[in-house]
Design a protein around this nucleic acid. Structure first.
Lengths: 221, 221
DNA sequence: AGTCTTAATGACCGATAAGTCAGTTAAAAC
DNA sequence: GTTTTAACTGACTTATCGGTCATTAAGACT
């Protein structure tokens, strides 16, 4: 209606149409817009009206590509989990040096992956709203947490074989190596306004604690 | 209506009334019921209908005691934060022995406080839905996190004065001592169905890592 | 027993947001 | 150029749930 009246009144033929068909690009755009809203408001708090506006489309368009709100969220999750850890695994397998250096290289990457990617948004929604999505926790665990776990176990096994890892309850649960990074992520997400602590401080403390706490004395410096 | 008809038709006088006035006990009962629902479903996912049913009252009764849903939640939070850490602080101030022993006594308590009390429910909601409650993050930080922080700083300062704490980035951020406990709490809340890891394993790894990683060598055994 | 106060009830209201779908129109097909 | 297809739109429908309030009735008092 408005488009027609503009055409008939001004006679311009070069005006861009009010809508464009961009079927191939749409899903990714919607997912990206959705991810931003989910990051701000969590799953339940996100309105599809806002996702649509952010993506520059009408709300009904979302349903051309995703069955419902949850399907959009799951699609966004599937797109983002997975690759984050795999690259690091390859690096670890090819690393020739001492465990201490390996940890000092890997831990910063894990921090970055957790704090700066969408992974922390997903983790946040998982923690807060995971019971709403029966399959999501399993997916996230399988694609992200388990891989991280296996990576850490690989590092510890390697270090044990080289005589660089101290035996003890910490080496028996390599997962705990990640604890300061998890804490950092949660701190940034939740408490940084109350008490800003830069991620770099967490990282420095993390490296210090793990290299001192996990390695045999001869392998610490 | 039904109550009346029962009375007039059967003539029984011993039947319990359909409702009881219990004004003094109600707020606590409603809070307890609310806390259970919040634990299961988070804030947004909790329906006051379910809280009321759990408390054995009508939904409208909740509004006799709490202005709205958020007021109920905040009341529940206020009741539960605060005391959790104070007792531990007193214990630390009076402890005469080495820092290693002190850590081995305090850390298990902090785990328990976090994992088994309602604190982890509140933390969970904070992480997932904290932006819904402008004042809640501040309250939780002030009443719980900050106290825990100060406690850890006190332990580290004490240990430094006794020459038992190793200098380094970890000692400069005592907060990070808590990281494995936070991780344990999140694991129990979020991933225990995918991969059960008992809290005791986290605790053992925690103790091992911190005593090895934070203390000077002479103070480790 | 009757009266009064007020705790408690549950049917109802209205705001909200997910989902629907008839209508519009861009772009492909002919 | 015309016709057909389907991407897109946005007003509308519907279900949900927080909050409301007229009514009921418990319990204290006389």
């Amino acid at each position: 209606m408005t488009d027609k009246s503009v055409k008939t009144s001004s006679g311009e033929r070069t005006e861009a149409p009010r809508r464009r068909r961009r079927k191939e690009a749409r899903p990714a755009e919607i997912i990206a817009a959705g991810m931003q809203e989910f990051a701000l408001r969590g799953f339940a708090g996100t309105r599809l009206e806002d996702v649509a506006r952010r993506a520059g489309i009408a709300k009904g368009t979302i349903y051309l590509y995703f069955e419902d709100k949850e399907a959009l969220f799951m699609a966004a999750v599937r797109e983002r989990v997975g690759p984050a850890i795999l690259e690091v695994t390859g690096f670890v397998d090819g690393f020739p040096g001492p465990t201490r250096e390996l940890l000092r290289l890997v831990i910063p990457v894990l921090h970055e992956r957790l704090v700066q990617s969408d992974l922390h948004t997903i983790l946040r929604i998982l923690i807060g709203e995971g019971s709403t999505f029966p399959g999501l926790t399993a997916l996230y665990y399988r694609e992200t947490v388990l891989r991280g776990r296996e990576l850490l176990e690989r590092i510890v096994a390697r270090g044990r074989a080289r005589g660089e890892i101290r035996e003890g309850a910490a080496a028996d649960l390599p997962l705990v190596i990640m604890a300061p990074a998890i804490m950092s992520a949660i701190w940034q997400m939740t408490f940084m306004h109350e008490a800003p602590i830069p991620p770099e401080r967490f990282l420095a403390a993390h490296l210090d604690l793990i290299t001192e706490g996990l390695l045999v004395p001869e392998a610490r410096h």
